[in-house]
């Protein structure tokens, strides 16, 4: 099972860190247990540097998360990406979904408790 750490910050920011493997074997339970009930504030910060393995089911879950944030009109920032995600995006030319939002990285990470 992939690990997920959700930090609800006071500045209306939800910080989500996902690490481990996110593949079809874990996707469904991960989605129902963590993504579906997730409360997203105005800002969603995604930290994906430790996502060691990802497949299409995993990427779809992540996109579902982005879709959810979008529906809630939250703004999305991707803080970090693992090699696994970068490789996937390289193959499918999905950079427009998953690119590290550089300008905000520092300030956001600075607010980490």
């Amino acid at each position: 099972m992939p690990e997920i750490k959700v930090v609800q910050k006071r500045n209306n920011t939800t910080e989500v860190t996902i690490s481990g493997e996110l593949t079809i074997y874990e996707a469904q339970s991960f989605f129902t247990e963590h993504i579906q009930p997730l409360t997203i504030q105005q800002q969603l910060n995604l930290k994906l540097a430790k996502l060691t393995e990802v497949d299409t089911a995993g990427i779809q879950v992540l996109i579902m998360l982005l879709n959810k944030a979008q529906e809630l009109t939250a703004s999305i920032r991707i803080i970090s990406l693992s090699v696994a995600i970068k490789d996937y995006c390289e193959l499918f030319q999905l950079h427009h979904y998953f690119t590290v939002t550089k300008d905000k990285v520092k300030s956001n990470s600075g607010e980490n408790p």
Partner: peptide, 9 residues
């Protein structure tokens, strides 16, 4: 989100 199935393409 309510109709999403994580194992479907």
């Amino acid at each position: 989100i309510n109709n999403y199935d994580a194992e479907t393409l």
